[in-house]
Design a protein around this nucleic acid. Structure first.
Lengths: 100, 100
DNA sequence: TCCATAGTTCCAATATTATCGAACTATTGA
DNA sequence: TCAATAGTTCGATAATATTGGAACTATGGA
């Protein structure tokens, strides 16, 4: 599988980031990734169809929130925390402080 | 004109707030309101049709970001900064720190 | 080589949103 | 009371998003 395209930190757009996080499914993915620091797609679906999850991961990747790399037959996702903290200081902290 | 419905601070929903801010027009409104602290709708349209602006103000109000009160024939809008800071500490600061 | 697993891509259906003109409402001032 | 101003509401249209099934791709293991 060809590697995914991840925008460089300097290209991150605030509106895009906020939009990506405005969906409950995606926000939960990000919250989980903040805890475990790395997880496969399968570990993060809530019994949801794979195609739906694939869509959400793509939105998160395109917004620059999540980094995905191939590891064997799975895709490992991680939060681009340092990039985000550098570009939008305090944003992720404020969002993750939210207890759902 | 009947007063607007504003959600209490305790009812604010993170996803809703993020969604409201993910639109460029609305984000700009919020950024401007952070500077001037109070402004009428007309002062904040960028030559955009009134009906469009009215829509955006409603989204901002419903999300709990903006407070609107009638003053004579105009509607004065202000950022619900203290409510937002109490509910989502640091969020608004992080977003407003962004220079567009 | 064959099969299972993990995700992606494609597609169509449904739903949500943005935009803006037109009609409407409320308030002020003449 | 009438006109002007400030916004809202309504309605239609176009754009964009979400969802999920089906087919496809890539990798690892038997």
């Amino acid at each position: 599988m060809r590697p995914f395209k991840h925008p460089p930190a300097s290209d991150l757009i605030l509106e895009r980031v906020l939009y990506a996080l405005s969906d409950p499914v995606r926000l939960e993915i990000v919250q989980r990734l903040a805890e475990v620091s790395e997880a496969s797609c399968g570990e993060l679906d809530g019994g949801r169809p794979k195609s739906s999850m694939s869509h959400h991961f793509r939105v998160l990747r395109d917004a620059g929130l999540v980094m995905t790399k191939s590891v064997g037959t799975t895709h490992m996702n991680s939060l681009r925390r340092s990039d985000l903290d550098a570009r939008f200081p305090g944003l992720l902290d404020a969002i993750l402080a939210q207890r759902s």
